[in-house]
Design a protein around this nucleic acid. Structure first.
Lengths: 197, 197
DNA sequence: GTCTATACACCGATAGAC
DNA sequence: GTCTATCGGTGTATAGAC
């Protein structure tokens, strides 16, 4: 995460500086609102009110910028997940994190990009695996404590929660709601039984 | 689906002709392999071995081409789903269609594009709603016949199957497999009970 | 640190010849 | 039907001044 840069020596801006964050913030917005094809150095510069050249002072290539943008997001998301897992009601809190994940449009862009930016792909894989590991260990602990060995193993539950939450978010943004009420009821019933309020 | 073209009068190629299909085939490949940013008239022309100008003889704009590409795919997918639903083992067949859906990379591109091409968005919504309706009616019938009113309503099951299948496909393509065995076992157990071989 | 200026390639879309 | 040629615009990335 720190800085694997400096392959070609070139004067560079400091990761973590105000401008650096502003660029990642801008990148997120442009990705979300206009898609990855619109995330160009010119567009980003215009969006955050600097000149195009400055983008290349902070990032070697546009791909690097994209990877860093995802990386910052992933760190935040993992952080949220860890907090949820170690809370008093881990099941409910984790489900809440899944449902209120980053905007589905943003995720759609990163998923598409991950298929052709190798470094991003690696980061995405790492993120999914780490998220799942946290979820599985939290679910295992919570369900064991309840001495309630459900027929559905924790790993399957984690996969289920993530998949369904992502679909719910994406479809809700599109305006599709068929089946949403029903599936939310199923999850609600499970939570009520496994982790009463 | 037929041809909502001809808003601006311009001589156009015939939808359904060999070249038209070749262009949609090429568009699918370029989308899958290189992403939507690479789906340009020049790239597509080169890919299928014609001149750039010809692309605009068959499609008014590149957005139109994308919408048609999705449309053709959606028709095929709905067709597969209908066949599955009216087969002897609808539950297993529908699950099979969900799992062996079009390449996850292609879907990722369309999901991203749907957020900014209005006509595509409308087609995607229509596709999701129609798919779900087919699934729900098939599931309702199959589960009623078994007089087996599960605690999980058909609409929730449909949502579940679609979400999980999509995630499984996407993650498998990335190389992530954590939890896959477990969730497949859960679905397998459900199918064995609800629709014995 | 931030800028101007510039290289060179590629984009969507059209005019109009054959 | 399919082509050549072309418009104006935008892309990444760099050189080098201040």
């Amino acid at each position: 995460m720190t800085r694997a840069q400096q392959t070609k020596s070139r004067r560079m801006g400091i990761p973590g500086s105000a401008n650096w964050h502003a660029m990642l913030d801008g990148a997120e917005c442009v990705l979300r609102e206009e898609g990855y094809a619109a995330l160009t150095s010119r567009r980003l510069a215009e969006y955050i009110g600097v000149k195009q050249r400055l983008v290349y002072y902070y990032f070697q290539t546009m791909d690097d910028l994209i990877v860093e943008t995802f990386g910052r997001l992933a760190v935040r998301e993992i952080e949220r997940l860890r907090e949820a897992a170690s809370s008093k009601r881990p099941l409910r809190e984790i489900w809440d994190v899944c449902i209120h994940t980053s905007d589905a449009r943003l995720i759609a862009e990163f998923m598409a990009l991950a298929n052709r930016i190798k470094k991003l792909r690696a980061e995405v894989i790492r993120f999914i695996e780490e998220s799942r590991a946290i979820q599985v260990s939290a679910l295992s602990a919570a369900l064991k404590r309840k001495s309630r060995n459900s027929r559905v193993p924790p790993a399957a539950l984690a996969m289920l929660a993530t998949s369904v939450a992502l679909s719910l978010t994406r479809e809700a943004e599109l305006g599709v709601t068929a089946g949403h009420r029903e599936i939310l009821a199923v999850f609600g019933a499970f939570l009520s039984e496994a982790e009463p309020k």
